[in-house]
Amino acid sequence: MIEELKSKLNLIESNYISKIQACQDLKQLQDLQVAAVGRKGELTELLKSLKDLSLEEKKEFGPLSNALKTKLVSLFEAKTAELETAAINEELNKADLDLTLPSYPFNKGGRHPLAIAQKRMTDILSKLGFVWAHGPFIEDAYHNFDALNIPAHHPARDMQDTFFVKNTNKTDFVLRTHTSGVQIRTMQKQRPPIRIMAPGRVFRKDALDATHSPVFHQIEGLYVDKNVSLADLKRDLTVFMKGLFGKKAEVRFRPSFFPFTEPSVEVDVKCVFCEGKDKNCPVCKGSGWKEMLGAGIVHPNVLRNCNIDPEVYSGYAFGMGVERLAMFSLDIKDIRTFYENDIRILEQF
């Protein structure tokens, strides 16, 4: 009996292996699988005869038939996977899409070029340990002028240069002409060490033309501690300029004058367009240098006005125009471009 069963087993094996190999249809393959190893399949039926065998015979025939079942099942699985893949590939090949049609037109969106330039500056200054501070646009004359050592008769305080606010109370309010008032507000609130940056809008009564705007942006820096010197200023601002214009940027310091710093300097960067080689360079006008910022050691009167003893503490301060940097770096030639908000400009950045 066992021999008869063995030959049936061999017959099932050879029969189904060749049928699996030949099958090219997923449905037929499933039917075949049911016929072979399904609940009423040939191999399952054959296994039912096992109960009639002796113990010895069971030990021999059992493993044989189980091995065949495992083999057939794995063959069916492999063939199924093969046919499924083929079917998917066939379906994919039917796709007929013009891939060059216009895409879904997401709006790009973007920050304003001045915001981009300002972020560049605040990012670098943040790395140098400067903390953000801000102050009001409508500033009283004390914070905008007096406390900054700008005397009452100074030309900058004239109606021709500064916007005055018409208000019903007595205080003299102006639209701040620089961000330097934030220095005063910070020093009045906080004892040294102080290391702040204050970016923001400022207002001057300049007629609008290609290089002047009544509204523009500045960034202010202030560092007050013991033993802060002009050499510290030169080091930090050199790092700042190299951060903005690259490690190779050449930086020049020139003496200058501001009422709220003493000594005062101006900082130039070697023209990145002509590198000082073009006598007719439109950017540096042939000078080879581009003025970037004004700076200096905080005037002792300014410290005193904030109750900081200039014999104990010292500090440096600097102010830089955001438009100037943006025009220089983004190659924008007319300052009015920033305030027209023409989408054809905005979408470029």
Partner: peptide, 27 residues
């Protein structure tokens, strides 16, 4: 500084920031 020349001022200071750096939050 003017007569000695700002170009003769070392830009590396003494290599240290004197400030006790502190953490401040943005407005």
């Amino acid at each position: 500084a003017r007569y000695i020349g700002l170009e003769n001022l070392a830009a590396d200071g003494d290599g240290t920031t004197h400030a006790t750096l502190y953490f401040g939050e943005n407005p």
